[in-house]
Structure formats: C-alpha cells, structure tokens
Design a protein around this nucleic acid. Structure first.
Length: 932
RNA sequence: GGACAGUUAGCUCAGUUGGUAGAGCAUCGCGUUUACAUCGCGAGGGUCACAGGUUCGAGUCCUGUACUGUCCACCA
C-alpha cells in the first residue's frame, strides 16, 4: 500500500479519536449499548483472559465453569454464576495471581435428547422412526447451535474466561478421559454389571439415578384385594396402589409378630386372576399398622420387594416392558399358564390397572378402595411417572475399597469434607452433604439414551460364534483379545451425563495424558500441575448431590486429591413474588439478555450481587435492575465531572508542587484506604454483597455527595480526584467491568503521572494496596463533626420551610472550637446555602434567631420573620426529649452491676454521652429563657 | 418421619466475635451550585415472629412454640 494514503488514514483516525477524547461532550447518561461490544472485543483482542499471558504470575487461581447444558438460552441462574465467577476471576487477575477461568458446555444427554424429541414430535416422528445414526446427527446439529448461543451469551455478561481453553463434555479428548476412567474403575472392580431394580422412565426409555427422580405428592387410591387361602374359605387381603403389578406377585408377606396372621404363615394363597400358587412368608419389614398388615411381593417392580425376593429366593417376574405395557415373557419362560390373564397383555399400565380391578370385581375378590395421599416418583426431565423395574445395568460400587487407596469411594467423599480439604460456603450445607453421602447407594451409570458417551464395553457374543468375553478397553476393539476370531459387539447403552461431568476439573486439563503414576504417586504435568486442585467451585446447592459429590469421588479416585478447595454455593434466583423463574408467569420472569439490552450488563451484574448471601435464594425484579442502572449512571457522571469539568490545569500546575491536604482531603484518603482494606477482605472471604455495599456507600455518599461537593469549594483538586477515581475504578471493576473499563479508557490521558505502570486496559491494572498509615481515626472524627454541623443546619432549613433560595446568615457561638471551624467557613456556607457565617467566641448572643446546638457549638440563624411562639414550643419539646435521654442514660449508669461488669470503654462512652446531653440541655434552657 | 433455613421499616434484604438497629425501593416535604431529575437536600416509618432462659446488657447465644420455604427418607 502506498505510504501517503496510509498516513492520511492514520491521521484521520487519530483526529477523530482525539476529538472524541478531548471534548467535553461525553453523553449525559452512560450508554452501555455503545460500549459493551467494543469493550469486550478489546479484552478479547488483548489475549489477557489467558493465564499464559502472565508468565511471571505465581499464585494460581482457578475456577472451572460449571458447564451449562447445551440446551438453549442463558437464564438468570447461569447469569448469577457467571457474575460471581467473573468477579472472583477479575479480582485475582488484578491482584496478579495466575488466573484461569476455564469455560465449557455439557452435552446433557437426557435434556438434549428430550429437546430434540420435542422438535421431532412437531414433525410427527419419534427418535425410533429416525434411527440411531440420523437421530444423533439431529442432536449434534441442535447442540452445536445451542453451545455457540450459550457461549456468546456468556460473552455478553462480560465473562473473562479463557475461551482458548473452552471444552465440551462430548469432544474427543473428553471421550478418551471418560473411557480411560471407566476402564480403570472396571479393572479395580468398582464397576460391575448386574440386574437390579432401577428407576425407569417409560417416556425417555431410560434408567434414572435415584436423585434424578423427583417426588410429587398426589391423591392416590389404595386398592384392597382378597387373596384366597388355599384349601380354606379364608382370604388374606392386601392393599396396593398399583394393582396391575399383582400379575407379577410371587408371595404375600406378613409380620411374624402379627397375631392376626400367625396361622397362615407357611400356607399358600392363590394369586387371583393368574391362579398361581404363591407362599405366605413372614418378614419384620412388614408394617402391621399399614393397610391390612399383609403385603404383596412383586420383586420385579418394587425395590423393597426386590430385596425380600432375594432374601427368600423367590423368582422375579417382570410383567411390564420398557414402555410400561403389560408383557408376560418372563412368566412364559417359566412355563406358567397364562390363559386366564392373556387379555391384559399389551395394555398400558393404567389401562391394565382398570382392567385388573374390574376383573377382580367380577371374580368377587375386590374388597374396597380408599383415597390415599402419597407421593410418586417422576422423571426430573419430563415429569413422567417412573416405574421401578428390574433391569440389567452397569453400576459403580461405592462401598468397595479401591486397591490403590484402600478406601471406598464413599469414604473418599466423606473424608474430603471431614478433613477440611474442601470448605463449603455456607458451612451448613456440609450436613446435607454428609447425610446424602452416607446414604449413597451403588450408582447406576448406564442409560438407554443414544446421545452421550458410549459405554466402553464390547461383548464377544456366542450367537456370533464368539467366546462370551466382556471386553472393556479405551480404544474400541477390532477383534476379541481372547478368541480373536470375531468382531465384538459394542454395548449400546451410554453413560450417565454426570459420569463425564464428574471428571470435569481434570478432564478439561488434559487428563489422562497430563498425569502418570510413579512409585504410587501421581505426577501431574501442564495445566493440571499448575491449576489442580482448582481454587473455587461456584454452583447452586441443588446439584451438591448430583454433581459436586461425584466430582469429589471421581477426582479423589483418579488424582488422590480434591477437585477444589472451596465450594461456594449460591442461591436460587426467584422472581419478585418469590417463585422459581422457570415456573413463574411470563411477566415476572426476568430474562437476563433482555435486562442487558435494556439497562446494561453492569446494572444486571450489580443487581445479582448486592443484597445476596451465599446459599440463600434471592428475588430479582426489573425495578432492582433499574435502580442499579441508576447507580452505574451515577458512577459515570461522577467520572464525567472529574474528567471534563474540573479541568483548570494551569491553575493546578502552579499549586500542584506540594499539595497541602485539607481536612476533607485527609478524610477521603483515610476513608479510601479503609475501603481498599475492607473490600479486599470481603472479597477474600466470599462476602461479595458486603464488598459491593461498602463500595456503593463510599462512592455515592462519601465521595460524590461530600467530597466532590467540597472540592468545588476548596478547588484545585483535579489530581487528587483523579487518583481517587482511578482506585474506585479498579475496585469496582470486578463487579461492573464495562463502565469502569470505558471510563478508564476515557481517562487514561488525564490521570496524573504518579503511577508509572498504568496498563492500557483497566482489567489488568494492579489491585491497590491499602496504606494503613493514611487511615486516621481522628481525622475521620473531625470530619464527622463537620458533617453533623452541616446536617443540623440543613435539617433546620427543611423543618422551618426556609427555601433553598433564601440566603440565611449563620452565627456560630463557640468558646473552644473557633480555630477548628475557621478553615471550613466557605465549605459550611456553601453546603448549607448560607449567605454569611460568623464565628464568635464571646459577646452577645442573638435573640430573634433559630437556635441549634451540636458538637459543642451554638448555632443561631437570625430570621426576619421569626415566629417566637413556635420556636418556644419547639425548644420546649427538645428540652423534654433531652431530659428523658439523660434520665435513661443516668439510669443505666446507676446500675452498679453494669458499671462493675461492662467493659470500661462502654461505660466511658455513656458518661461522655450524658455530659454532652447535659451541655446541650443547659444551652437550650438558656436560649429558652432569652426568648421569654 | 428426619434435617436445614427464614421470620428485622409499606416492599426487598443487610446486620462478622453480645454494647442499645441500617441500606435500597416506596411514601411525604423542598428544588440551589462546575457532573448527574437515571439527580440533590430533608423527613416520617421498627416491642427485630412469639414465650421463656443465660447475661450488667440479646436482633445477635440457649430452649420451646407458631408460621413460611427447601431438602432427604418412607409411602403396600
């Protein structure tokens, strides 16, 4: 390209830039829409989200993003997580730690499958119509789109994660990790295949883990059915809520101590309809109080019955197929006569229920029915009532000790928290964690879902001429390693999604390649060595059991260490009426993306941070977001004032050599250093709301309403104002990154040259150190007394309806404080809109004037239209008030025990208080006399 | 059945080793400077759910009760 036009372009760009930067015409209100995309791009382009950009940084800080499901749109719950994680990440990055926030998404087998099935349903087809391969294609398409949506929405929130390390639970590297893990656990005998009762969702056509089943209360019906006792006229009546399952009954059980049934134990009853003979057995499990005290045993369709069936060696007849339709194959195999029940076969479970009842009625074996409230298990994804059935599945044994650790997975999970290797915030959730982990049962990890990690198992099937070998291997085997003459058939089932997400902290960091075992110890390399165990896991308490627990077990197993040091549990975001967003009505649900568009990301972020405590649910409303939009705008305007309206640089250069700090200067510096210390401490202690609150009070009250106002009187404070502003920008940045980065960009040329290492982007500006020598309690007290004087006068103005336009004169009468007050005459005058302020330490006191007293000062406001009678009444009231205060306080001081036992400073303070009250009382009484 | 939270101003919520209660929003009154009406100044408003106990002193610690919410287990 020729040089001249290039130069021309640069010049034009420079001029536009210069014109924009130096004009006094910053918009009156902050305009997030014009800032956020550009700012995020600048961050991305800088490459500074990547910890590799800081080779010298030492202390590692790492958060693994809980991978959102790749099923659609970002909701407020995600937003809260992103905001908290980004806050911590930005804080630690600014502190100079080697900071990594690793993003990713989850393939969420069941959720994704359901979404796509719903889409297919609109086309009138099912996944089975489509076939496995084509269906998986559709899911992949859908998931790809969602993943990129979700990840873009994270960017809108300002998430400063290292996108170059982004992971997906179903990418090839994760598959390798998952297969490796499975193979190792299998080798260690922790994974087995067996027939157990599982929770079966007939709609998803898959098993569900215990905690994937929700319990819903319902008004059910308890049916009483008579089972004739063989060779007798008598019956045993059983009560059941699922009468259709009786077709698979194998026994009737009673309590061995039940006097009603003693004589029947060991007898045989005839199973109605089926006309099968089944035994009457006795077991302590049966509750004599419930129903009739006799219980039908259906091992294939109830977990407790299954246990009893095993205990007494009873057969198991599964009479419901995978779609929950009646199917008698297992009875047929056992050569039972099915002629009397044939008509039920093929019926849906609820149709069969009606049919069975009516058949029983016809047979005269139906006694009665009763309404009964109980709860049923439903699928956590589709709300379908789950059916317990026996099924051949893969399980992880949580009680078996591993060869390497000589500790079971359950023990690992308990130890990690007991030993305080992992801290849970808030601590009370430890109890819930322990309770759940102690009751942990073997984890069913196989799912009959197509979308997911295929279980790395193949079978050398005899029907294909194979040897029957079960082959578990990381790579898919091409031939059977044992008989090597057939191609093994791969297992069709996939793994529970939580199996892969349980490995999330280390599979994302290159495991297993980045770790090897040497002499019984695990040597980590690369990111795994730098960042693992990760620092914090932020998530919601509802998946403490689903996910967090599994992460701990699997990480301890694979790496002999915890996945993270701290678990921060945030609460649930509710709508303004306290309902779950997902269940709330359209008009009260908050869409984070809509809030961002309307009020800006920073406003949304602040409304998710302030007034929120860990573990407690929070309400979010549009009003709240709006009020923080207002705050963001306030910060903008403070900055706008400092950057464009204080400019009197010629003047300040003359006097800037040795600044003489005024009381207000020293006060704000003291407050600022205090603030730095407190905010840092709060963030370190995960008290984010408190940190934000401290910042808000400082920024709005101390800085804007007092200091900036005073600076207008005292003048020449550009340098100091800028310095304070810069610190404020840094402190606010982790919470409100966009507006602060933008102000910083605008301000970069204006900052005084006192900090040599000022980076181009605020996001990497060093977090400030608090200078404790600048914190001065005495100065803060003095300034407080100035504030009290101003407030007392303002209050009097308002109470007496003296309009702001009316210039009043102030006469201060004070024998001791005139030296203190003299330098602040202008400030007090200005802040109270007074005309003239005179200070007297002796002489005549004015008569026709409003009288105030505070801080050892008598304040007189002479008024032309003084209403003496009103003033008398007012003073009388004040006098009564203060007398009662004195009475109360003296009462307490008269308490011998209080004086003897309370700490001295408390007693001293009270004495001081009484003295002050007394003093004010005397002044008021004197003034009252003068008014007569 | 078991466990855990919550109950503080009209509303939403803070309140960190027990020292005499705060903020935002809402309400009411008043609108003046070198930024901000998405603002400023001022005001009102609380038996801290209830009942006991420990203590000189309890919103804060202990016990019990009520209500609300959540979780777990059982449910023939």
């Amino acid at each position: 390209m020729p040089l001249k036009p290039l130069l021309g372009t640069i010049c034009v760009v420079f001029l536009i830039f210069f014109a924009m930067e130096s004009s006094n015409e910053l918009p009156k209100a902050y305009e997030p829409q014009n800032v956020e995309n550009r700012t995020y791009k600048a961050w991305l382009d800088s490459g500074l989200f990547n910890p590799d950009a800081y080779p010298e940084a030492k202390n590692p800080f790492c958060i693994i993003m809980p991978p959102p499901n790749a099923t659609g749109r970002l909701h407020t719950g995600h937003a809260l997580g992103y905001v908290l994680e980004d806050l911590m990440t930005r804080y630690h990055r600014m502190k100079g730690d080697k900071t990594l926030w690793l993003p990713g998404t989850d393939h969420a087998s069941i959720a994704s499958t359901n979404k796509v099935e719903k889409l297919l349903a609109k086309e009138g087809i099912s996944r089975h119509d489509l076939g496995r391969e084509k269906f998986l294609e559709r899911v992949s398409q859908y998931v790809e789109q969602s993943r990129s949506d979700i990840s873009n929405q994270g960017r809108l929130l300002g998430a400063s994660c290292d996108w170059s390390r982004e992971r997906y639970t179903l990418e090839p590297a994760m598959t390798k990790a998952v297969r490796t893990m499975f193979a190792r656990m299998y080798k260690d005998d922790l994974i087995y295949r067996g027939t157990r009762i599982v929770n079966w969702c007939p709609r998803c056509m898959s098993t569900l883990a215990d905690d994937e089943v929700n319990h819903k209360d319902q008004e059910g019906i308890l049916y009483y059915i008579k089972y004739p006792i063989k060779n007798s006229e008598a019956f045993l009546t059983v009560a059941t809520t699922r009468p259709e399952t009786m077709l698979g009954d194998v026994a009737v059980a009673v309590n061995p101590n039940d006097p009603r049934y003693q004589q029947y134990i060991g007898n045989v009853v005839t199973l109605p309809l089926a006309n099968r003979d089944i035994p009457v057995i006795a077991d302590e499990y049966v509750d004599m109080e419930f129903g009739t005290g006799s219980l039908k045993i259906t091992p294939a369709h109830d977990p407790n019955d299954f246990e009893i069936g095993r205990k007494y060696n009873l057969p198991t007849y599964r009479i419901l197929d995978d779609e929950a339709k009646i199917n008698f194959d297992s009875l047929r195999k056992a050569n039972h006569d099915l002629s009397s029940i044939q008509q039920f076969e093929g019926m849906d479970r609820y149709t069969a229920r009606e049919a069975v009842i009516s058949a029983l009625q016809t047979a005269g074996l139906f006694e009665k029915k009763k309404t009964y409230s109980n709860s049923v298990g439903v699928c956590y994804r589709c709300d379908t009532i789950i059916e317990p059935i026996t099924s051949l599945q893969w399980f992880i044994d949580v009680n078996k000790k591993t060869p390497r650790h000589n500790e079971s997975l359950k023990e690992m999970g308990l130890r990690a928290i007991h030993s305080k290797d992992i801290q849970i915030i808030p601590q009370r959730f430890e109890k819930q964690y322990f309770q759940w982990t102690e009751n942990l049962r073997d984890w069913c990890i196989s799912r009959q879902i197509w979308f997911g990690h295929q279980i790395p198992v193949s079978y050398c099937l005899p029907e294909n001429g194979g040897c029957g070998e079960t082959i578990v291997s990381v790579e898919e085997p091409l031939q059977c390693p044992k008989c090597s003459n057939t191609k093994p058939t791969p297992e069709e089932d996939t793994l529970d999604t939580w199996f892969s997400s349980g490995m999330w902290t280390f599979s994302t960091m290159g495991w297993p390649d980045n770790a090897e075992e040497k002499d019984g110890k695990i040597i980590k390399k690369g990111d795994l060595a730098t960042f693992h165990p990760t620092t914090v896991l932020d998530t919601m308490w509802d998946i403490l059991t689903f996910w967090v627990n599994r992460m701990i077990l699997m990480t301890e197993y694979a790496l002999d260490e915890a996945p993270f040091k701290t678990i921060y549990l945030h609460g649930m975001v509710l709508d303004k009426n306290g309902r779950k967003m997902s269940k709330s009505h359209e008009e009260t649900a908050i869409d984070p993306l809509e809030m961002i568009e309307k009020y800006g990301t920073d406003a949304l972020r602040l409304s998710l941070l302030i007034g929120v405590t860990p573990g407690n649910s929070m309400r979010l409303s549009q009003d709240k977001v709006e009020s923080y939009r207002n705050f963001v705008n306030k910060l903008w305007n403070i900055s706008r004032y400092i950057l464009t309206f204080t400019g009197n640089e010629e003047k300040s250069e003359k006097t800037a050599k040795k600044p003489q700090y005024t009381l207000a200067d020293r006060w704000i510096i003291s407050r600022l250093n205090n603030l730095i210390a407190e905010v840092s401490k709060s963030i370190e202690h995960y008290e984010f709301s408190h940190a934000a609150e401290l910042l808000r009070v400082f920024t709005w009250d101390d800085f804007a309403d007092w200091y900036v106002e005073i600076s207008k009187v005292e003048g020449d404070k550009r340098a100091l104002l800028l310095s304070i502003l810069e610190v404020l920008l840094v402190l606010w940045h982790p919470m409100a990154p966009f507006v602060t980065e933008e102000i910083y960009r605008l301000a970069l040329s204006s900052f005084p040259p006192t900090h040599p290492d000022r980076p181009a982007l605020l996001m990497v500006r060093a977090w400030p150190q608090s200078n404790s020598s600048a914190i001065d309690e005495k100065i803060e007290q003095e300034f407080l007394s100035l504030q009290k004087i101003v407030q007392t006068i303002r209050n009097a103005r308002s109470e007496n309806h003296i309009s702001a336009g009316e210039k009043i004169n102030l006469i201060f009468y004070t024998p001791h404080k005139s030296a203190f007050l003299t330098p602040h005459i202008d400030t007090i005058t200005r802040l109270t809109h007074a005309g003239q302020l005179t200070i007297q330490d002796s002489g005549k006191k004015p008569h026709s004037a409003l009288f105030l007293t505070t801080e050892d000062i008598e304040i007189y406001i002479p008024l032309t239209s003084m209403k003496i009678e009103e003033e008398k009444t007012r003073l009388d009231k004040e006098i009564i008030n203060i007398e009662s205060l004195i009475g109360k306080t003296n009462g307490q001081l008269a308490n011998q025990e209080f004086v003897a036992k309370a700490p001295e400073h408390i007693v001293q303070d009270l004495h001081q208080k009484v003295a002050n009250y007394q003093d004010e009382l005397v002044r008021m009484q004197e003034q009252r006399k003068r008014l007569i």
